[in-house]
Design a protein around this nucleic acid. Structure first.
Lengths: 233, 233
DNA sequence: CAGATGCGAGAGCAGTGCTCTTGACATGGC
DNA sequence: GCCATGTCAAGAGCACTGCTCTCGCATCTG
């Protein structure tokens, strides 16, 4: 019977998932540095070597948590975008930014794992690059929709994009089809500002600088929206 | 003789410095996670317990490295600012941004220690807050000079700063006396963008996105300068 | 010149990631 | 049904970590 084989594989899948869940719990409380394979095994009533049947190393377990983290923030961003009237492009952008911030503040250690220092030697590029771009796709779609519907006015002021940047902008434009260079290059800046603000907040840099951090964040995000040419609210 | 007392104390000071230097070397090659007190002791020909006479814990040694790191980037920023004609406020801002980026790319692990995930439980606030603000003081002075000399034109467009933010903006204004609210609030955004861009680059987020990262950085920094009201070049 | 103090060495504890071997169990072909 | 095959948990063990403690020795202080 293939069901018995399935039983074995299902047990493996369930145990793998349980390891990930417990590891995420320990990550949430102790941070990435405090995550211990032995502690995970202990909490599962297993011995440490048994865990290595499911994850060949601690870094692989961390990589899995990273992928799941990107997926979680991507999910939050997509839901936030879907909850707003599609024609309200500025509202969508603001909602998406708040979704990132809210998720990061609720999962600071997971956020640190995604956007803080690379914990192992360096990041495994292939596995994580897909989920990592999930949120960027949403930003791109918002800008693309705004441009296609004529709601995005081409920003003026500031220097024009340097010619050698054309290839790079073309690649980034894949996430926001049709959008002109001046908007693409500012989109990258907005992306950096978003995560810069959130990182400052999560990592404590803003602690001694700003008190009403939610108000500042909201205002900054709206100002940036205006800068890139999105309509005011 | 106080010279013999000085000899003892000087030996202590020299050994402390040697520990820090070796630790910084190991930080540069192995990263913060790989920095080991025992390895430092080994490289010094000491036994590990002896190092604890100089630093009560590994976290204290890391804190020292953090303070030195903030000092180093602050130094780099101040030198970059001083090397430009003081009246060329935009040039000063661009130079300062490049100084941060250059330092970060040259010392990625140290940068990660400063602006990546907080490695120990959490950062000791009092000791690090002074050196951490050293670069921000330079940004503030540039904007303050620009405003005082009439070279900074009040930016328009975008929503006005919310009233509840007045207190926070007043506090931030301490670093850029006289500058109006609309500029202060954008200065915070610029600060976040600067470190967001550098973090994306140092942490590898841009690896699969942009190739001519120096060109993009320079252009972004100049665009932001125009956004905050600094004159074009 | 004593006594107090600072310092390095060594042993030791608890914890970590990871490897290897051993024995029990389920799976699948004959 | 049986037996080889592969999977699995367990345990021991290695090398490493941060950190604590004690013990002598050198240095400094009154």
């Amino acid at each position: 019977m293939s069901s018995s084989q399935t039983a074995r594989r299902r047990a493996r899948a369930e145990l793998t998932q349980e390891i990930v869940d417990i590891a995420r719990g320990q990550l949430a409380t102790s941070g990435a540095a405090g995550l211990s394979l032995r502690a995970v095994a202990r909490e599962m009533g297993m011995v440490s070597s048994a865990v290595y049947r499911y994850f060949p190393s601690r870094d692989d377990l961390l990589t899995r948590l990273i992928i799941d983290g990107y997926d979680a923030v991507g999910e939050a961003v997509e839901q936030a975008d879907a909850a707003v009237d599609p024609d309200d492009v500025t509202g969508r952008w603001v909602a998406v930014c708040h979704a990132v911030r809210t998720w990061a503040l609720a999962h600071p250690h997971e956020y640190a794992l995604l956007h803080g220092s690379p914990v192992p030697g360096y990041r495994a590029p292939d596995d994580t690059v897909g989920p990592a771009a999930r949120d960027a796709v949403v930003y791109g779609r918002i800008l693309s929709d705004a441009w296609a519907s004529g709601r995005l006015v081409l920003p003026d002021g500031g220097p024009p994009a340097p010619a050698p940047l054309a290839d790079d902008l073309e690649a980034v434009r894949a996430m926001m089809p049709g959008v002109p260079d001046a908007v693409v290059v500012r989109a990258v800046a907005l992306w950096a500002t978003l995560y810069g603000m959130v990182s400052f907040e999560v990592f404590g840099t803003f602690d001694t600088v700003v008190r009403l951090r939610d108000v500042l964040f909201d205002h900054t995000v709206r100002s940036l929206a205006a800068w890139i040419g999105l309509p005011g609210t």
